[in-house]
Design a protein around this nucleic acid. Structure first.
Lengths: 116, 116
DNA sequence: GGAACGTTATGCGGTTTTGGTATAACGCAT
DNA sequence: ATGCGTTATACCAAAACCGCATAACGTTCC
C-alpha cells in the first residue's frame, strides 16, 4: 500500500430503472419485505422509521411506473385492514435480491476495501 | 432467455464517502474535468447545463468536507479570471477515473445486460 | 491613469418539491 | 350501532432549487 488512508471510502449501489427513471432499489426492497412480514403498510413504515405517508407514496409511485400492482390492500375489516404482496411483487423481490447479492459480493471483494 | 424484456434496466454507480457522507461522484468528476478543460467554473457549468451557482456550491461543499482545495480560483485579471485544478484535485480525478473504469467494466459485463 | 470586460463570489425572491400532520373512508368484531 | 386500526387523501409547513441581480476583482485596452 503506497497510499495513506485518508478516510475516503468507496461506496456503490444498484437499482432498477424504467425509461431512465429509478423505480426499485434498496429502500423499496426493504419496504416490500417488511410489508410481507408484518402484513401492514403502516407497521412496515413504523419499523423503517419513515412516516406512513412516505411509504404509501413510494408504493404508489412504483405501481404507477411499473403498471401493475405490488401491494394488495384491504382497508377496514378485521384489525382495521391489511396488506399483502402481489405475486409480481414477490417475484420482483426475489430477482432483485439475487441481483443485489451477486453485486454486493463482487463489489465487496474488489472495490469496497480500497482506500484513497 | 426465459424472461421477456419488461423495459426494466439495471443501473449502478460508485462514489466516495467521508464519514458516511457522499463527497465525490460522477457529477463532480465531470465538473472538475470540465474546469480543467475550460479553465473556468462558469464555462464548465454552462457546458454541463447547470447554473453557475450550483457548480460553485458543489465545489465549496467538496472542499469543506475534504479539507483541502480542489479549484484554485483567480477573480479579475485577463479575461476576467480563471480557475485551475489543484494538484490534489488532479490526483483525485485520476484515481477515481481508474476506479470507475474498473467498476463500470465489471458491471457492464456482469449486470447491465440483464433484463427483468 | 481610467474605463471596460468577464470571471468569481454572494445575496435575494419566487417556485417547485418534499415532509409531516390531520382527517376521512372502510369493514369486520363486538 | 359502535369501536377499532388500517388504508387513503387533503392540507399546510419546511426545505431544496432556480434564476436573476449585484458586488468584488485585476488585467487589458484606450
Amino acid at each position: 500500500m503506497s497510499d495513506r488512508d485518508s478516510g475516503l471510502r468507496v461506496r456503490s449501489k444498484i437499482w432498477l430503472e424504467l425509461d431512465g427513471k429509478p423505480v426499485f432499489g434498496q429502500g423499496r426492497e426493504d419496504l416490500l419485505r417488511l410489508i410481507r412480514e408484518t402484513g401492514s403498510i403502516n407497521a412496515a413504515a413504523r419499523e423503517m422509521g419513515i412516516p406512513y405517508r412516505k411509504a404509501w407514496s413510494y408504493i404508489d409511485a412504483m405501481e404507477k411506473r411499473l403498471g401493475f400492482p405490488l401491494v394488495v390492500r384491504q382497508k377496514g375489516g378485521a384489525g382495521g385492514g391489511e396488506s399483502t404482496l402481489s405475486p409480481q411483487a414477490t417475484a420482483l423481490l426475489e430477482k432483485f435480491h439475487s441481483l443485489k447479492k451477486n453485486f454486493n459480493g463482487m463489489v465487496d471483494r474488489k472495490f469496497t476495501r480500497l482506500r484513497f
